[in-house]
């Protein structure tokens, strides 16, 4: 990915990271800590990751501050205590709304950029 594509990806990610994190935590019955979540995302992705793992932690924190995730601290032998997150009922309600918003957005955007629309531009690394 070149710099312009990277910047576009970053702009897109502003809300998407929070949506994906709520989605990951809504899928599991257990609570997860940051590293678990990062590795789940890593396993699911194809190609270059959409966002760095380091950026999910502040988002987890802000989701917890909004009351959409609950968290508990568990001491760890290998380092600082780990913070485990679990989605709250309020978080599930928010996720349901966000999913609708996301589907609308995706369908709308696809009308103009999807496979049936004009061929999408392919990003290529600029040759030095």
């Amino acid at each position: 990915m070149n710099d312009i594509a990277r910047k576009f990806q970053r702009d897109l990610n502003a809300g998407l990271v929070a949506l994906v994190l709520l989605g990951v935590l809504a899928d599991v019955d257990d609570d997860l800590y940051g590293y678990d979540i990062a590795k789940r995302l890593q396993r699911a992705r194809q190609g270059e990751p959409l966002f760095k793992e380091g950026t999910i932690y502040p988002v987890l924190r802000s989701l917890a501050a909004s009351g959409w995730l609950s968290s508990r601290i568990v001491p760890s032998y290998s380092g600082p205590p780990r913070r485990y997150y679990r989605i709250t009922d309020e978080g599930r309600a928010v996720l349901a709304e966000w999913r609708t918003v996301w589907r609308h957005t995706r369908d709308f955007v696809d009308q103009f950029t999807g496979p049936s629309a004009a061929p999408a531009a392919t990003f290529e690394e600029p040759t030095p």
Binding site: Q42, K52, E53, G54, T55, Y57, P58, S62, S66
Partner: peptide, 19 residues
């Protein structure tokens, strides 16, 4: 995968501000 310290710092500054 995790990002360089500069990227991570930027993420914290941006998110915390919004929070």
């Amino acid at each position: 995968s995790y990002g360089l310290p500069a990227d991570v710092a930027a993420a914290y500054l941006e998110t915390d501000y919004k929070v």
